[in-house]
């Protein structure tokens, strides 16, 4: 499990937005409004964001600045959303992506 940094020796305590609820593959999770979806998932210990289309290999955060597209997921029904630069909102529905579309894959491992 990953953790949030409570106090930083240089930055002190980092300000966060208000706490919001969202779902991850149907499970209720909490995060802070406005932080990237990927950060809220990371804080909850989620490592796998999607499985690749051909070989069903897991992918997660790689660059964290919206460049590599490894962290894309299905967010509110829309596939290929870069979760590392998408701000978290109350009630978001975040799902692990299989391949390149929003469809649930039957042969997901």
């Amino acid at each position: 499990m990953s953790e949030r940094i409570a106090e930083h020796p240089i930055l002190g305590t980092q300000e966060k937005g208000k706490e919001v609820s969202f779902t991850y593959d149907g499970k209720q999770l909490k995060g802070y409004e406005g932080e990237p979806v990927a950060v809220a998932l990371k804080a909850a210990g989620v490592m796998v964001h999607r499985y690749t289309a051909k070989r069903h290999e897991p992918r997660g955060i790689f660059c964290a600045i919206g460049r590599c597209t490894d962290c894309v997921m299905v967010v509110d029904g829309v596939p290929n959303v870069r979760t590392c630069i998408t701000p978290l909102k109350e009630g978001m529905d975040v799902r692990t992506q299989a391949g390149c579309t929003a469809a649930e894959s039957e042969d997901r491992p």
């Binding site: 990953s2 953790e3 949030r4 940094i5 930083h8 930055l11 980092q14 966060k16 932080e35 990237p36 950060v39 990371k42 804080a43 490592m47 796998v48 964001h49 290999e57 897991p58 992918r59 997660g60 955060i61 790689f62 660059c63 964290a64 600045i65 490894d70």
Partner: peptide, 25 residues
């Protein structure tokens, strides 16, 4: 190298210093 948990050093910096979350232990 494609496994979740392999990240750029810049990604670690972003997670730590902008978002206050640990990339790992």
């Amino acid at each position: 190298w494609t496994l979740p948990g392999v990240i750029g050093a810049g990604a670690a910096q972003t997670m730590l210093n902008l978002h206050g979350v640990l990339p790992g232990k």
